[in-house]
């Protein structure tokens, strides 16, 4: 390699690194913005008796997002999981947050399933999904709860994301509709609304599929939803902060040195 060539190569390497640095810098900034769009865990303390958010993005920005909004006596809680991860997922998650704000802030008497119905419309429209052409298949899976703090009733509607409730140490899983927010192979059907009469001490968990889908270093198998439920059940007696710690360490242990395959989000709360 001639000195001239060497110089050129260095220059290219420099430029490439410079470009990468710029990319990372802008991603990091995007990550900051994304986090800013989600409520600070400290703020959540004002909404719940107790709560935790285990939020482990695979990359700098995440396709998972969580959402809390208080409108009069209603507390709206959601955990979303956008298709993919990284930048595409993050962009979609921002859309999701924006749509949730848009829909919920105009509602007098919000119904969880109707919020999801509307959100699906908005996503399909935003992504120009009509089912007629080869459009993007991006979508959001989400679990949405709307708690009426006056009546103690909790509405739940889920797009592929379940809700887990622990009552007196016993786990109940509320199954979601097997539909996503976005274009799906089958024609859109209405989401169902499940109403839960909450009791003091009830604990609820919304989560993305990142935890359960994570391959273990030792087993090379997915953690699986069943095991996640078992873990949640086992830690449910703890304070929320402790639950988060246990769940996080469980995840990290399971993952070991393998690559995190997806963003991880678990949102636990006690009303």
């Amino acid at each position: 390699m001639t000195p001239q060539n060497q110089h050129s190569s260095d220059l290219i390497s420099f430029v490439q690194n410079q470009v990468l640095d710029d990319h990372f810098a802008s991603l990091r900034y995007a990550g900051i913005i994304q986090k800013a769009l989600m409520p600070d865990p400290e703020i959540l303390k004002g909404f719940f008796k107790d709560s935790f958010v285990l939020f482990l993005p695979r990359d700098i920005v995440s396709g998972d997002f969580y959402y809390v909004l208080r409108i009069r006596q209603y507390l709206c809680i959601a955990a979303g999981d956008c298709t993919g991860h990284g930048v595409p997922g993050a962009l979609l998650s921002i859309l999701g947050i924006s749509f949730l704000n848009d829909i919920l802030q105009g509602r007098i008497d919000p119904k969880a399933n109707r919020v999801l119905n509307m959100m699906r419309e908005k996503i399909m429209k935003a992504l120009h999904q009509t089912g007629e052409k080869a459009e993007t298949k991006d979508s959001i899976d989400i679990g949405l709860c709307i708690a009426d703090c006056d009546s103690g009733k909790l509405q739940y509607s889920g797009a592929n994301r379940p809700l887990i409730m622990i009552r007196n140490g016993e786990l109940t899983e509320f199954k979601p509709d097997k539909m996503t927010l976005g274009l799906a192979p089958l024609r859109e059907q209405p989401f169902t609304n499940q109403i839960i009469e909450t009791l003091p001490g009830d604990k609820f968990y919304l989560f993305s599929d990142g935890f359960a889908d994570q391959f273990g270093e030792l087993t090379d198998k997915k953690f699986k939803h069943k095991h996640l439920k078992r873990v949640i059940s086992s830690v449910s007696e703890f304070k929320m902060a402790k639950q988060k710690d246990v769940l996080q360490s469980t995840f990290l242990e399971w993952k070991g040195n393998t690559q995190q395959i997806d963003d991880v989000l678990i949102f636990g709360f006690q009303l």
Binding site: R114, N117, E121, I123, K125, A126, G131, Q189
Partner: peptide, 15 residues
């Protein structure tokens, strides 16, 4: 509802 309007009247899937 928007959904029923789409499904039963417009018969399209557009958001």
């Amino acid at each position: 509802s928007t959904l029923d309007f789409k499904n039963h009247i417009l018969k399209t899937r557009e958001g």
